[in-house]
């Protein structure tokens, strides 16, 4: 019973959503629209589940003053503060002068953007330490990377000796070998997704339902 209902539901809903592509009738789409809306509500609820889990894990650590409890307190306090100013702002929360908007502009934006900006520095370090022309394959990778890095910036658009040939050759790499490789990956991924989808819908793949 505990497994049968989810399996039957998976089969019915999965098949119904596959049909959405093949049956363009408006009445059929009325049903799929309802399922899609439920789906996006549930996806949002899964995020909330993550929130409760986070509080469940971190709050006891703060209460018991376990290792790094101070940082976790900052995290929980920031979370509560954001929630309070967000709900207080309501549908006006994005207007200038709202605390929620201020928090976004001056706390969220710099932190989010700088976290990712750090990668520029790490990619430089990786380029120095790990990018070695050890064999033919690695050399091809390295040469392609250098061609793209030179030709993609204004400086490389009209270099002496090679002129416009370098950007043209870079475009060839992007349009021919790049597409060949990407399409192979796409086709492989598509076959994988289709077989996984079918396994899920037919109930062969059950890992998402957990164990009994």
């Amino acid at each position: 019973m505990r497994s049968t209902i989810p399996l039957v539901l998976t089969f019915v809903i999965g098949l119904f959503m596959v049909g959405e592509y093949f049956i363009p009738h408006w009445r059929y789409h009325q049903f799929t629209q309802v399922f899609l809306e439920w789906g996006l509500i549930l996806a949002a609820a899964a995020f909330l589940l993550g929130l409760f889990n986070l509080v469940q894990v971190n709050l006891p650590k703060v209460v018991n003053k376990e290792e790094d409890w101070g940082y976790k307190l900052v995290m929980l306090a920031a979370l509560v503060f954001t929630l309070v100013v967000g709900f207080m702002g309501g549908t006006d929360r994005l207007s200038n002068g709202q605390a929620y908007k201020w928090l976004f502009d001056f706390v969220f934006v710099p932190l989010n953007a700088t976290m990712f900006a750090l990668l520029a520095f790490y990619i430089a370090s990786a380029a120095f330490r790990a990018f070695r022309a050890r064999n033919l394959e690695a050399t091809v990778l390295l040469v392609a990377a250098i061609i793209v890095m030179v030709a993609r910036v204004p400086l490389g658009e009209d270099l002496p000796l090679v002129g416009e040939k370098l950007p043209q050759f870079m475009n060839w790499i992007m349009d021919v070998p790049n597409i060949a490789a990407r399409r192979a990956i796409f086709i492989g991924a598509a076959l994988g997704a289709v077989s996984t989808g079918l396994r899920v819908i037919l109930g062969i793949e059950r890992s998402h339902l957990g164990s009994d």
Partner: peptide, 20 residues
């Protein structure tokens, strides 16, 4: 398991046709 089955099935269905 019931909502998880619902959401996994919905994703599986739309992914299948989209990828194909």
């Amino acid at each position: 398991r019931i909502p998880i089955a619902f959401i996994v099935a919905a994703y599986a269905g739309v992914k299948l046709t989209g990828e194909l």
